[in-house]
Amino acid sequence: MGKRKDHITDGMLVTSLKHGEEKAMEEIVRRYSNKIYNLAYHLTRDASAAEEIMQEVFLTVISKIGTLEHNSYFSTWLYRVATNASYGFLRKEKKFSEQTVSDEIDQEPSIEFEHDWSNLPDDILLSEESRNILKDSIDSLPETMRAVVIMKDVEGFSNEEVAQALSLSVPAVKSRLHRGRLILRDVLSDYFRKYTVPSGEDA
């Protein structure tokens, strides 16, 4: 049964939903609830907000599905509603400060001496402390850069999905992603230095 359902495309589900078929809504919820919840959770870092946003997204599906012209754009449309609702929440909570609105970073990330931390063991790379440092650094990226990094690298969306959900061009997504990754890499390089450079030899 589950296997058969996987052959049903989103476009087919949307057509059924437009005809008021409840089963189509159930399948859409099955396919997208976790994805929408995770996306909203990572954007807002707030579990109850993520639940509310997820509800809002599916309510929007019910009330606005008739306005979706191209059924194959369904998932993109869902992600766009979810990211907009997440931004709405963050604005309301004033978690975006004015200076994060701009995506411009004054200086290029440093290209100084590089130490190789890529061979550190997983228990260091994935320690709670290092994961928290990475989370905090992602959170402090400028608004759109942060959303791009979360969608692409944390949640695994494609460049095209990110671009459509955030109303950006694919090149704009890629440039923000690249700059964001360089910033995060610099932060991690600083943090892991204590494990790769013997104390007292820090240049």
Binding site: N38, R131, V149, L188
Partner: peptide, 22 residues
């Protein structure tokens, strides 16, 4: 080194949290 750490940064971003679900 830059390339290895750049690639690893991407991998670590994908693992900052256990996949959560509703």
């Amino acid at each position: 080194v830059c390339f290895k750490t750049y690639s690893l940064t991407i991998q670590l971003s994908g693992r900052i949290e256990q996949p959560c679900c509703v």
